[in-house]
Design a protein around this nucleic acid. Structure first.
Ligand SMILES: [Mn+2]
Ligand SMILES: [Mn+2]
Ligand SMILES: [Zn+2]
Ligand SMILES: [Zn+2]
Lengths: 127, 127
DNA sequence: ATTTTATTGCAACTGATTTGCATTAAGAAA
DNA sequence: TTTCTTAATGCAAATCAGTTGCAATAAAAT
């Protein structure tokens, strides 16, 4: 297993992800925990949590890596199923969408992985 | 118009994109033209060419910005149509796919923009 | 040929992420 | 519980993509 010790810093981050289903960037997390842990620690913990399957990640439009809890835990959806991500151009929140997306088949190409990112206005910012 | 002068550096970059339909990162371009122009110049020319509609761009899985010639020129496809991008995990080449993709509609959400990225093996690396 | 100003080069800077290394602290073993 | 092993952390420095300020250069208009 790639993360073995439940340190206090790991617990803090795990707790945070228990309480949000949004996708958070390292920048947001280091800011939130600036008094509690070093930024390098945040990077390393997220790495390990992803390895361990607790979190998953994607790269947003700005090139920032964002993490969210494993989607199967979030919606009871098939863990294998690929889902898209959303980012609100007003408030900046980012989230996993409970939808299945599929990749097309291209002659002579193999597609192993697909990333779908939608940008627009969230329900909060819409009305 | 946001790019007015056809300087020798602009011509070099334009020529390169005439001869490839791949999506190139600034890193690749600065490398290619390291003896011909400054990296800042590469950044600025790409900016202007995108503004002018000669090129378009997207953010790849590694968070790098990639540019390719305008897709309408590439395939005679509707310029408005959204198309996905592919990246080979073997050779690293990246390209526009001549396919139309559409975004789902999510209740209470507005989707203005969508990015689709497929990762796998290209025809060259496949066989 | 002269003038105007868009474009370039260069050096310094920013912001995200990584790395090396000495120190600390989970948790297994005694 | 105390001791031991080593995973995990903090910190400082490095890396890497991208940006900025400014003086020098060169398109292209006059
Ligand atoms: Mn997700
Ligand atoms: Mn494209
Ligand atoms: Zn919003
Ligand atoms: Zn390939």
């Amino acid at each position: 297993m790639s993360f073995s010790r439940k340190t206090k810093t790991v617990k803090l981050i795990l707790d945070l992800f228990e309480n949000t289903s949004n996708a958070l960037s390292v920048v947001e997390l280091t800011d939130t925990f600036s008094k509690k842990m070093n930024k390098t620690t945040v990077y390393r913990i997220l790495d390990r949590l992803e390895e361990a399957g607790e979190l998953h990640s994607f790269t947003d439009k700005d090139g920032l890596k964002r993490y969210a809890k494993n989607f199967s835990k979030l919606k009871g959806l098939n863990e294998q199923a690929n889902h898209p991500h959303f980012m609100c151009q007003d408030c900046g929140i980012s989230s996993c969408l409970p939808i299945e997306v599929s990749a097309p088949s291209i002659p002579n190409y193999t597609i192993n992985n697909s990333e779908h990112l939608y940008i627009g206005h969230c329900n909060e910012c819409n009305n």
